[in-house]
Simulated scan of single mutants.
Amino acid sequence: MIGKLLFLAVGLLIGLLLARFLRGGGGRRDLTAPPPARPPLRRVGDERIDDEEIRELIRQNRKIDAIKLMRQKTGLGLAEAKDAVEAMEDAMR
């Protein structure tokens, strides 16, 4: 009888320790702390990009190459470069 109770207590203790470990040491976070810093977003409209090479690629219907060149020259992300190239394309019509 005592052996069974001891086995149950040890099992319960191991289970509690395992649950605490899996939760990451309490699982609580400070909701009053400021949010983590994020890099500032770059907007396509902040800069005017006027590049004849990109315009020529758009004229040749080589939109993917124009987007690649836009990313290479400006450091924009894929979505921002695509939006910029499409804005240039719309302005050329």
Rank of each mutant, 00 (worst) to 15 (best):
I2R: 12
I2M: 09
I2F: 04
I2L: 09
G3A: 15
K4D: 11
L5I: 12
L5F: 06
L6M: 14
L6P: 01
L8A: 14
L8S: 12
L8M: 13
L8R: 10
L8K: 12
A9W: 05
A9N: 08
V10W: 02
L13P: 00
L13Q: 10
I14V: 14
I14E: 05
G15K: 08
G15M: 11
G15L: 11
G15I: 06
L17D: 05
L18N: 05
L18I: 11
A19N: 10
R20I: 13
F21Q: 14
L22H: 06
L22M: 13
L22G: 05
L22N: 07
R23K: 11
G26M: 08
G27T: 05
R29M: 12
P34D: 13
P34W: 02
P35K: 14
A37K: 13
A37T: 09
R38M: 14
P39V: 11
P39C: 09
P39R: 14
P40C: 07
P40G: 06
L41D: 15
R42H: 08
V44G: 02
V44P: 00
G45K: 11
G45I: 09
E47Y: 04
R48T: 11
I49V: 14
D50W: 02
D51P: 00
D51Q: 07
D51L: 06
D51Y: 00
E52M: 10
I54G: 01
E56I: 03
L57K: 05
R59M: 03
Q60G: 07
I64T: 13
I67G: 01
R71L: 07
R71D: 01
Q72W: 02
Q72E: 15
A79P: 03
A79W: 03
A79K: 15
E80P: 00
A81C: 08
K82E: 09
D83I: 08
A84R: 07
V85N: 01
V85Y: 00
V85F: 00
D90H: 09
A91E: 10
